[in-house]
Simulated scan of single mutants.
Amino acid sequence: MLHELAYALAYAHHTPEVWLVVLAATGTTFCAGMDLKSLAQPGSPVGELESASVPAPSGPVRIGELMAGLHKPCIAQVQGSVYAGGFLLVGGSTYVVAAESATFSLPEVKRGLFPFQVLAVLLDIMPARTALDLCLRARTLTAADAKAVGLVTDVVPDQALAEAVGQLTNELKQFSPTAMQFGLRAAQQLKSLPSGEQQAFLYDQFQQLQQTADAKEGMAAFLEKRKPEWGL
């Protein structure tokens, strides 16, 4: 599954026709995290498939890095429980629309482990003490709790989940995909820049964006008082 996620996210990133991504699941669990049996049996061939469904990745698959490198809006449609490494998918999404019955928990400390990679993602979303508390006490959050700490962006009735995600995707598709990609990429790059270089970098990004076909079409549509037609 890690390889399939890596393949799908890379495909979405490099394919102009893909404007956004929705991560969804079926059943009562959105993501259960890592298969702990693979840790308990270190020499076992867990995860090795007789016939791979996608090409092998060029290196180790790190979900947090894949999500950060998508540079396109990503919506997590959370219909059930999220555990452990599933926080990487949720925390790395641009929007998280959760059903009221969904729950969120980091149980690693109960197993003698610690969610190191998840912590890094949480520190971008919420205060450090809140992030550490989630990792240290292994509490189970309701969808409302998760929204209160910034992990979830919207909570809706269970039966309205698909409709709410559909409305959000339709809204996002009204806007320039190029502009959104520039913005999401810049948001990631800012994290590695000293504060004294950030404004110059953002000014350069704006200059580059102005030269794109989407920017020219957007300005023309504004002046002509019509709906823009975004290119691919």
Results as ranks from 00 to 15, higher is better:
residue 2 L to E: 15
residue 17 E to G: 13
residue 17 E to I: 13
residue 23 L to C: 04
residue 32 A to M: 04
residue 59 G to N: 08
residue 61 V to D: 10
residue 62 R to F: 03
residue 62 R to P: 00
residue 68 A to C: 08
residue 73 P to V: 07
residue 73 P to R: 07
residue 76 A to S: 15
residue 77 Q to F: 01
residue 79 Q to C: 10
residue 81 S to I: 00
residue 81 S to G: 15
residue 82 V to M: 06
residue 84 A to R: 00
residue 85 G to L: 10
residue 90 V to M: 02
residue 92 G to L: 11
residue 96 V to R: 11
residue 100 E to Q: 15
residue 100 E to V: 11
residue 108 E to M: 11
residue 109 V to W: 04
residue 110 K to C: 05
residue 116 F to R: 12
residue 116 F to V: 14
residue 120 A to E: 12
residue 124 D to K: 13
residue 124 D to Y: 01
residue 124 D to C: 07
residue 129 R to Y: 08
residue 130 T to C: 09
residue 132 L to P: 01
residue 133 D to M: 07
residue 150 G to Q: 09
residue 150 G to W: 13
residue 151 L to S: 05
residue 167 Q to R: 15
residue 169 T to C: 13
residue 170 N to V: 00
residue 171 E to G: 01
residue 171 E to P: 01
residue 171 E to Q: 15
residue 174 Q to Y: 02
residue 179 A to T: 05
residue 180 M to H: 15
residue 180 M to D: 13
residue 189 Q to P: 05
residue 195 S to N: 07
residue 195 S to H: 10
residue 201 F to V: 08
residue 204 D to A: 14
residue 207 Q to V: 14
residue 209 L to Q: 05
residue 209 L to R: 04
residue 210 Q to Y: 02
residue 217 E to H: 02
residue 219 M to W: 05
residue 222 F to G: 00
residue 225 K to N: 14
residue 227 K to V: 08
residue 230 W to K: 01
residue 232 L to R: 12
